[in-house]
């Protein structure tokens, strides 16, 4: 099943810019992107290989398809093209949680991530707006992660106030700054966790400034109960975690770990050559807040027997 990422958020939060960047970034993946309105998507003319009514094919293998009035039909159309990932731009007034139902139930796809874009300059005003306040709050609640745009347009004090306001909400989604409408592909999309599928290094300077990606490895299997318990208590700075683990009660089988925000899945997977003997997990989070020591410690506690031999790279 094709992983589905939903980009939500109110009008003006930067969804289209993010999608423009996703379509043109050199990530080497064939993305299918469903957008509400072609007009707003500004694809570099040199990249357009073919334009046919409601579909634009790009020379890098990506496609962009207009939802128009027929969401299901548009989704089926791109599923048939077997892309690596599908990205849906939710309308500014959509509740991303509702679109997520498609990821949970439409044949051929499964929900990967719901990323909600947040305009740092206007979110608090919008959240109190008579017409859209309640909607904007639901959008915040629906995100596996919140991507804060335009934080460079507000003062440090205002940033602190905004962080405090977001943190005080009852439903917490991890929030992270992004610049120029761009976030690491590995963060937004499930990009596979085989070494052979490693994407070209992310050279976007803003990504290095705001995000970090850390690899944890151990050659020994984990204790299932301890690890699941640890997983539940990981800090919200873990925006995405992916990898393979083995458990001591079933060490012949590798499990694929996929965690986006607070949503997590652990699934037994067929044997393949690049599975580790123990655990290998990549964690992506904000550079300034991802406490790698605490995460190392958490994994060390999960190892079934003996002392730690965790390697951090």
């Amino acid at each position: 099943m094709i992983p589905l990422t939903i980009i939500g958020g109110y009008l003006g939060a930067g969804k289209t810019t993010l999608i423009n960047n996703l379509l043109s970034a050199p990530h080497g993946r064939r993305l299918a992107v469903l957008v509400n309105d072609f007009g707003a998507v500004n694809i570099d003319r040199d990249l357009i290989a073919h334009h046919d009514g409601d579909t634009i094919a790009l020379s890098n293998g990506c496609i962009c398809c207009s939802i128009a009035d027929a969401f299901g039909a548009a989704l089926d159309k791109v599923i048939a093209l077997k892309p690596d990932n599908i990205v849906i731009e939710a309308s500014g007034v959509a509740d991303p949680a509702k679109i997520a139902y498609y990821g949970q139930g439409w044949p051929g796809v499964r929900l990967d991530a719901v990323a909600v874009m947040v305009d740092a300059t206007s979110i608090r005003r919008r959240a109190g707006d008579k017409y859209v306040g309640e909607l904007v709050q639901r959008q915040l609640d629906a995100g596996d992660m919140l991507l804060l745009s335009k934080t460079d347009l507000i003062s440090r004090d205002e940033q602190r106030t905004l962080r405090g306001w977001l943190a005080a909400r009852t439903v917490k989604s991890p929030a992270v700054d992004i610049r120029h409408g761009s976030a690491p592909v590995d963060l937004l999309l499930e990009t596979g966790n085989r070494r052979s599928e490693a994407a070209p290094p992310d050279a976007t300077p803003d990504h290095g400034r705001f995000f970090t990606s850390v690899l944890f490895e151990d050659h020994r299997p984990l204790d299932r109960a301890v690890f699941i318990d640890e997983l539940e208590n990981w800090p919200d700075a873990v925006l995405r975690a992916k990898g393979f683990v083995r458990f001591s009660d079933d060490a012949n089988r590798a499990y694929s770990l996929q965690r986006v925000g607070a949503r997590c899945s652990l699934e037994a997977v067929p044997r393949s050559d690049d599975q580790p003997a123990g655990a290998r997990i990549v964690i992506i989070g904000p550079r300034d807040r991802l406490d790698t020591e605490a995460l190392s410690e958490s994994l060390r506690r999960s190892v079934a027997v003996g002392t730690s031999a965790l390697v951090r790279r």
Partner: peptide
């Protein structure tokens, strides 16, 4: 069975399930 807005047991489709 996996669709949150289709009840496989009763055969009921609602909201986003209707789209299917």
């Amino acid at each position: 069975e996996r669709h949150p807005q289709i009840d496989a047991e009763t055969g009921k489709f609602f909201e986003t399930g209707l789209a299917l």
